Amino acid sequence: MNGGVNIWAITPEERSKHDRQFDSLTPTLGYVSGEQARRFFIQSGLPASVLAEIWTLADLTNDGRMDRLEFSIAMKLIKLQLQGQALPPALPDIMKQTPTPSILTSSARFGKPRLCAISASPKMEGSGI
């Protein structure tokens, strides 16, 4: 990507937002059902056929439910699709990685560089619609 930002990378900020949305669906044992996810994703206004493609890409284990990572991947793909980005033929590896800060930010109060905070969460497996 010529040193630029990879559009497929999920930022820590996006992951945090996705985690809040995931939690709002009251997951059971770390998963939301395919039906819970479908009802949430349909709110995007994307056609069911596009959401099915997104599900296929985000569904890492083909188990009919989604964990945090899979949900976040689906949300990122929905966002990109709404912005006019075509879906990839296969899930980019970068989407499966834990979000990491891409740049240093400066602390206005102290003028010292610092890394953006990242919430630590273990990678979980699961999915489905």
Rank of each mutant, 00 (worst) to 15 (best):
Leu104Trp: 04
Arg114Val: 14
Asp59Phe: 07
Ile73Thr: 02
Arg38Ser: 05
Asp93Gly: 07
Ile54Lys: 02
Ala120Tyr: 09
Lys96Gly: 08
Ala58Leu: 05
Leu104Lys: 02
Met124Thr: 14
Glu53Tyr: 00
Gly30Asp: 13
Pro92Tyr: 02
Gly30Cys: 06
Ser44Arg: 00
Phe71Lys: 07
Lys96Glu: 04
Ser106Phe: 12
Glu53Ser: 06
Ser119Tyr: 11
Val32Glu: 02
Gly30Ser: 07
Ser16Ala: 15
Gly45Ser: 01
Phe22Cys: 09
Gln81Tyr: 00
Gly111Glu: 06
Asn62Glu: 09
Leu115Gln: 09
Phe40Tyr: 04
Leu46Asn: 00
Met95Asn: 06
Leu60Lys: 08
Arg68Asp: 11
Met66Glu: 12
Pro88His: 03
Asp67Tyr: 00
Gly84Arg: 01
Ala37Gln: 10
Leu51Cys: 01
Met75Arg: 03
Ala117Val: 04
Thr98Pro: 12
Asp93Ser: 05
Ser127Val: 14
Leu69Met: 14
Ile7Lys: 15
Gln83His: 08
Gln85Cys: 13
Arg38Tyr: 03
Gln21Ser: 13
Gln85Met: 14
Ser127Thr: 13
Thr98Lys: 12
Ser107Phe: 01
Thr11Lys: 01
Leu87Ala: 05
Ala117Gln: 10
Ser44Trp: 05
Arg20Thr: 13
Glu70Met: 04
His18Thr: 08
Glu13Asp: 14
Gly4Gln: 07
Gln81Met: 05
Thr26Pro: 11
Gln21Val: 14
Gln81Val: 07
Lys112Gly: 12
Ala48Cys: 03
Lys112Leu: 15
Glu125Gly: 08
Pro113Tyr: 07
Phe41Asn: 04
Ala86Asp: 10
Met124Tyr: 12
Ser44Pro: 00
Phe40Ser: 12
Leu57Gln: 04
Leu77Asp: 01
Met1Ala: 03
Arg109Trp: 06
Lys112Trp: 04
Pro113Lys: 03
Ala117His: 11
Ala120Pro: 10
Lys123Pro: 12
Met95Cys: 12
Ala90Trp: 09
Met75Gln: 02
Pro122His: 13
Lys17Trp: 14
Ser72Asn: 04
Leu82Ile: 02
Ser33Asn: 08
Gly128Ile: 07
Ile73Pro: 04
Glu70His: 09
Ile10Met: 03
Pro27Glu: 02
Ser24Pro: 07
Asn6Asp: 15
Glu14Phe: 03
Val5His: 11
Phe22Asn: 05
Thr11Cys: 00
Asn2His: 03
Phe110Met: 09
Ile73Asn: 01
Lys76Ile: 02
Gln43Leu: 05
Val5Ala: 10
Asp63Met: 12
Arg39Tyr: 03
Trp8Ala: 08
Ser102Ile: 07
Gly4Thr: 04
Met66Cys: 13
Leu91His: 11
Gln43Phe: 00
Glu70Gly: 15
Ile94Leu: 03
Phe40Cys: 08
Ser121Pro: 07
Ser107Asn: 14
Gly4Tyr: 00
Ser24Gly: 13
Ser16Asn: 15
Val50Leu: 02
Met124Phe: 12
Ala120Arg: 13
Ser24Gln: 14
